[in-house]
């Protein structure tokens, strides 16, 4: 349950970005990458975003969340890419196993813990009707 503080972080990051690079038009969608290793509820993040953006320049904008799969780098054999998943009965969700799928070695996570705004969808003002 840290969605609220993370949503606040996203709001601040975006406001900062908009101060440096103002955009033309109403922000309709905010595109976010969310790594699958993060323990975050998408609904709670959406709700926190809605509350935190009320009344400001981001009011009415919607989060469009894209889940990012885990990618790793193997310290042993140099493999880079996705991992295997544990999805047998009883595990409810497919869970990434942080092990090199090629040699079984120890890996470093290079993607899958991301949480960043990567783009905006703008409604153009004064667009021809």
């Amino acid at each position: 349950m840290h969605e609220y503080s993370l949503a606040m972080g996203l709001v601040e990051a975006l406001r900062e970005e908009l101060r440096r690079h103002p955009v033309n038009g109403r922000i309709a969608k905010v595109h976010v990458r969310q790594g699958e290793l993060l323990v975050l509820s998408e609904e709670a993040l959406q709700e926190a975003w809605r509350i935190l953006t009320q009344g400001g320049e981001l009011a009415g904008s919607e989060l469009a969340i894209e889940k990012v799969a885990v990618r790793v780098r193997c310290g042993g054999c140099g493999y880079q890419g996705p991992v295997g998943y544990l999805s047998e009965q009883g595990w409810h969700f497919a869970v990434p196993v942080l092990r090199c799928p090629r040699c079984g070695g120890r890996v470093e996570v290079v993607e899958g813990r991301d949480l960043a705004i990567v783009g905006l969808s703008l409604e153009e003002q004064g667009s021809p009707t």
Binding site: L14, E17, V23, G25, A28, H31, I117, V118, G119, L120, S121, L122, E123, E124, S127, P128
Partner: peptide
């Protein structure tokens, strides 16, 4: 309204 996407 016309929409367009920008990268951030």
């Amino acid at each position: 309204p016309r929409m367009h996407d920008i990268h951030l």
